[in-house]
């Protein structure tokens, strides 16, 4: 993504932010079943792994030399992304929170996320490409608290409740992974 975002109308921008705030509230309130209703049955939910790559000498002095995307082993690569999931994965993740024998959710973590930098960056027919950033504070009884930081690259389609998430790619800002799990719903 290069250049400024599309010129969204104030209504469009407001609708996107309203949707993301609602989604964040559902996730922080552990209303995962309601959250699942925001997700397309065909969703692609991706998290590339992040690699320390060699400097490409030919790119020296240019922005591409240190571009974020060079560090990502994504779904098209022959590396190994952290997550390549569909609806069934998200359903399993959502449902296990409601089982008393899901030991890593029991007692559940306390989370609070701030979503911002919402930018409409593309539009194809009714589908919108939207970027957003998040900081997520995570505190789990018996473990250390931590902060997750990342970017979401979404494809949304219009729906009754605002939008449906058709695709989400989560770019995590980690060097070594020092959080208890990257398996949360971001």
């Amino acid at each position: 993504m290069n250049g400024p975002s599309l010129e969204a109308t104030p209504q469009q921008q407001r609708a996107l932010e309203r949707f993301y705030y609602y989604e964040a509230r559902l996730l922080d309130n552990r209303q995962y079943q309601q959250w699942l209703a925001l997700v397309s049955p065909e969703i692609r939910y991706l998290m590339p792994s992040r690699v320390n790559v060699m400097v490409d000498n030919r790119a020296r002095g240019k922005e591409e030399m240190i571009s974020v995307d060079r560090e990502l082993e994504g779904p098209d690569s022959l590396g190994c992304p952290i997550r390549e999931e569909g609806y069934i994965h998200l359903m399993v993740r959502a449902e296990r929170a409601f089982k008393i024998n899901s030991w890593s959710e029991n007692p559940p973590a306390r989370t609070r996320r701030i979503v911002g930098n919402v930018e409409l960056v593309g539009q194809r027919g009714e589908e919108l490409s939207v970027l957003s950033n998040f900081h997520l504070y995570y505190a789990r009884p018996g473990g250390e608290s931590c902060v997750y930081s990342g970017q979401r690259r979404d494809v949304l389609s219009p729906a009754e409740q605002g939008y449906t998430i058709e695709k989400r790619e989560v770019i995590m800002d980690y060097a070594n992974i020092e959080v208890p799990t990257l398996g949360l719903l971001f």
Binding site: C80, P81, I82, R83, E84, R93, W103, G143, P180, G183
Partner: peptide, 17 residues
């Protein structure tokens, strides 16, 4: 592998804890 194990694995998040 990645669905069940590794840093986001549905099973490994229980093991690591």
């Amino acid at each position: 592998y990645s669905s069940f194990f590794g840093p986001a694995g549905i099973l490994e998040q229980e093991d690591s804890e």
